[in-house]
Write a protein that binds this DNA or RNA. Structure first.
Lengths: 263, 263
DNA sequence: GGCTGTGAAAGGCTTCACAGCT
DNA sequence: AGCTGTGAAGCCTTTCACAGCC
C-alpha cells in the first residue's frame, strides 16, 4: 500500500484548537453575508444563530483569536471579517490544482465559491490525453505528464484530488513529491502521506452511511422482529465464537441482533 | 419559513459514540476490499492500518458493537462486513433523491459508489424546466413541482441538496415537509431544520479554508520579528478597543500581523 | 442594562496498558 | 505466544455562569 504513514501530527496548531479552526470558515461566511447587507455590528447571539452554533461556543472560539469584540455592543463586522480572514490565511491567494477532471472535477472547477475567497484554480489536470487542451470552466485541461512542472511553476501547495479511487494514491504521491503539502481528497480511499502533509477528505458515501445509521435508528424506534427475510449472515463467526453481549440471554432469533442496549 | 433551529440532539446515538459511527464506513470499506481479495481474517493492527486509524481506537470502536473478534486470531472479515453493514443500516436499500442537477448534482448522480452500497438514486430533481425528461446517469430529471409526489411515491427519507445556496433552504423545507428526515447538504449554507431531522454538510470551501490555515502555519514556521508592513485593516476596531492577546506570553509583539508568508 | 471574555465544570474521545481468552 | 476487549488516565471540546467592561 503505497508509502508512508497517515500520521496526524499534533492537532493543536500553535494555539487555536482544531475544532475552532474548523468553525472559523462558518463564521466568516455568516459575517460576509452581514457585511454585504452593510450590518455594522453583530452580537455573539446573532452571529451564532447565523452560523448554526451556540453563542458560548462562538465567544470561546473568538477568545482564542484575541479580544475583538466590545462589551455591551458586540463585534464589528468588517473588522472581524478581516481578522478571521487573516487567521485563516485568506488575505493571500492560494493557487490550487485540481487533478481528475471527470464529472466531479469539472463541477469543482466550475464552483464559484472557489475563486471568490482566497483560492485560485491554477490548473486542471487529467490523465486522459483527449481532454488535453479542452477548456473546462474556462481553463484548459493539462495532461498528467506535466503535473510536476505545473506545480512548480505555479508554486502550488494545495491540491485537490478528484480522480477515481485507483489513481488517487499515485496522484497523491506525485503531488507531494512535487511540493504540495495540503491535499483535499474526493476519492474514496485512504491516502498515505508523509508527516507534514495535511489531508482532508470529502466522501459522499461515508456521509450517506452516517445518515443511514441515524435514519435506521429513527425508523426502528420500536424494533419489531425484523420480518422473516433475514439476509443470512455470511458465515458463522470464526468457528464457534460464542458472541454474547451484556449478560442476559439474547432474544435474537439466530443470534446476533444485539438487542437493545441497556443504556 | 426557514423554521426551527439547528439543534443537534444528543450526539450519543443509542449506545455508539458519534465518533465511532463516523468511522464505521471507513472500516467497512477496508473490509470490503479485503473480502474481495478473499482474505479470511484480519487483525486489529492490519485493519487499522488499512483504514488509516490506530488499532486501539479500532478495537474500542468495535467493542461498542459487540465482541466480534477472536482473541489470538483477529476478526473474521465476512462476518464483520455483515455486522457493520447491519449496524449502519445498509442491509436495506435506501432510496435517495438528488435535488439540483447542475455540474455537481450530475457528478453525484454518476457517482458509482452510490448504488453499490445500500443506496439507490430514486430520482433527480431540478428547477429548470428545460432539464425535465433529460436523462442524467440514465435517470430522467424531474421538475421541482413534483418534489412532494416523488418523495412520497418512493418512500424517500434521505435527500441530497446540490442546488445553489440561495435555493437550498427552500428545497430543504419542502423535502422535510414531504417526509425526508436526513439531508446531505452540498450547498454552502447553514440549513435550519426541525428536531428529528439530521443534516450533514459537505463544503468545499470550508475544507479548503481549513487547509489554508494549516498551510499558512507551515510557511510561517520561524516567525521572525514582524517588520512593519501590514495590510491595512478595513477599519479600526469599534472605536479604540485596545486589543491585546494573552498575558504577554505571546511572542507576537502586539501587532496582529502574524508575520508575512514567504512561500 | 447589555454583552463580551473566561475560569471552572462537565462531557466526550483517544490512548495506554494489561487482563483474559484462544 | 498472540491478539482482543476494556478499565483507567489524559486530553480536547463544549457548556455553564459570572466577573468585567461599555
Amino acid at each position: 500500500m503505497a508509502t508512508g504513514r497517515t500520521h496526524r501530527p499534533a492537532t493543536r496548531s500553535r494555539g487555536i484548537p482544531e475544532a475552532t479552526v474548523a468553525r472559523l470558515p462558518l463564521y466568516l461566511r455568516a459575517l460576509t453575508a452581514l457585511s454585504e447587507r452593510s450590518v455594522p455590528t453583530v452580537s455573539s447571539e446573532e452571529l451564532a444563530a447565523a452560523a448554526g452554533v451556540n453563542s458560548a461556543k462562538l465567544r470561546k472560539d473568538f477568545s482564542y483569536l484575541g479580544s475583538y469584540g466590545t462589551r455591551g455592543v458586540g463585534y464589528d463586522v468588517e473588522y472581524l471579517v478581516y481578522q478571521i480572514s487573516r487567521e485563516l490565511g485568506l488575505t493571500q491567494d492560494w493557487p490550487v490544482v485540481i487533478v481528475g477532471i471527470g464529472n466531479l472535477g469539472a463541477a469543482l472547477a466550475n464552483y464559484g465559491g472557489f475563486a471568490s475567497r482566497g483560492f485560485r484554480v491554477a490548473a486542471l489536470i487529467d490523465a486522459d490525453p483527449s481532454m488535453a487542451g479542452k477548456p473546462v470552466a474556462g481553463i484548459p485541461v493539462q495532461h498528467t505528464d506535466d503535473l510536476e512542472m505545473i506545480i512548480e511553476e505555479n508554486g502550488v501547495s494545495i491540491g485537490v484530488i478528484a480522480t477515481p479511487a485507483g489513481a488517487a494514491q499515485q496522484v497523491c504521491d506525485r503531488l507531494v513529491a512535487a511540493g504540495v503539502t495540503s491535499i483535499l481528497n474526493f476519492a474514496p480511499t485512504v491516502l498515505s502521506v508523509p508527516d507534514g502533509v495535511d489531508v482532508r477528505k470529502v466522501d459522499l458515501s461515508i456521509e450517506l452511511q452516517i445518515l443511514a445509521f441515524h435514519e435506521q435508528r429513527k425508523a426502528g424506534e420500536e424494533t419489531p422482529g425484523e420480518g422473516g427475510a433475514d439476509t443470512t449472515p455470511p458465515a458463522a463467526p470464526p468457528a464457534a465464537a460464542v458472541r454474547r453481549r451484556g449478560e442476559g440471554t439474547e432474544p435474537g432469533p439466530d443470534g446476533d441482533v444485539p438487542a437493545v442496549m441497556p443504556a
